[in-house]
């Protein structure tokens, strides 16, 4: 298995996901939609599994590889949220976001076969990165929900507030778990758990921004105003994930890849 087969798996998964989501909207029986979406998830996961098996190391090394996981996780989060809250639109948005990341990977792969340098050969490598990407996917879903809530008239947000808070709290749990696993790993690899490396600085900014949202209600900030923090925090997240390497401060980052 290699990246040249990616297009077939991705196209197959996307077709299944689009038709599944459509079936959720159109069909009275949710079974068809569920089957199609689950099939797409299995197909996409199978590609990651086969790619992993064919490489000597987990496919978590390059930017393209992190986007690969994001394409799957955003749909997983969207689908889990649909199963719990019955929001079909979140499922639909997740599939659209996933499509964007699949297209980026097809058009600008950045997947040059790289060797795994010694510092990355650690048991913390897989949990550190996957937990972060899972958190990013939940925060992405929360951002979509926050924008929809802000778009709606005041008082007509329905259960959106509860959904957003659930996504942010759980996503934040993963975010912090990812950060702390990174700290333990850094101590093993470089003798220090935190060095204010540019990626660490931006990870800190991201976490602190979400903390502002989580504490907003204790500061009596009205809910709709607090929702504005979510897209801002997500911008910080995107800088942390994809933007840091383009910043002038990134020259000496240990996180460049």
């Amino acid at each position: 298995m290699s990246w040249s087969e990616f297009i077939y798996f991705a196209a197959g998964s996307l077709i299944l996901w689009y038709n599944g989501t459509l079936a959720l909207y159109k069909s009275k029986n949710a079974l068809w939609g569920n089957l199609l979406i689950a099939g797409g998830i299995l197909l996409f996961a199978a590609f990651i599994g086969l790619l992993w098996a064919s490489m000597d190391h987990p496919p978590l090394r390059t930017m393209g590889e992190t986007r690969l996981w994001y394409s799957l996780f955003i749909v997983l989060v969207g689908y889990a949220t649909y199963l719990r809250w019955k929001y079909k639109w979140l499922m639909a948005y997740s599939v659209v976001v996933s499509t964007v990341f699949v297209l980026v990977n097809l058009l600008k792969p950045e997947i040059h076969t790289t060797n795994l340098m010694p510092a990355l050969q650690s048991i913390w490598f897989v949990p550190h990165v996957t937990v972060y990407i899972l958190s990013y996917a939940m925060m992405g879903a929360a951002t979509i929900a926050a924008l929809i809530a802000l778009w709606r008239e005041e008082g007509k947000e329905g259960e959106l507030f509860a959904l957003i808070d659930n996504l942010i709290f759980i996503g934040f749990g993963f975010l912090i778990a990812g950060m702390l696993m990174g700290a333990i790993w850094a101590k093993e690899a470089w003798g220090d758990y935190w060095t204010w490396d540019p990626k660490e600085v931006w990870a800190f900014i991201t976490a602190a921004s979400y903390l502002v949202y989580l504490h907003a209600s204790y500061a009596n900030i009205p809910k709709r105003k607090a929702l504005l923090i979510i897209p801002l925090a997500f911008i910080m997240l995107i800088i942390t994930w994809l933007g840091v390497e383009y910043l002038a401060v990134a020259q000496e980052s240990i996180h460049s890849y």
């Binding site: 204010w196 540019p198 600085v201 931006w202 800190f204 900014i205 602190a208 921004s209 903390l211 502002v212 504490h215 907003a216 209600s217 204790y218 500061a219 009596n220 900030i221 800088i239 840091v244 910043l247 002038a248 401060v249 020259q251």
Partner: peptide
């Protein structure tokens, strides 16, 4: 120890960190 103070301090440390993260 109030929540308002936490929010102000978090915003303050975030702004300083953004400077740290942008200016070489």
């Amino acid at each position: 120890g109030s929540g308002r103070v936490s929010v102000i301090l978090l915003v303050s440390i975030t702004v300083m960190s953004i400077y740290m993260g942008l200016v070489p």
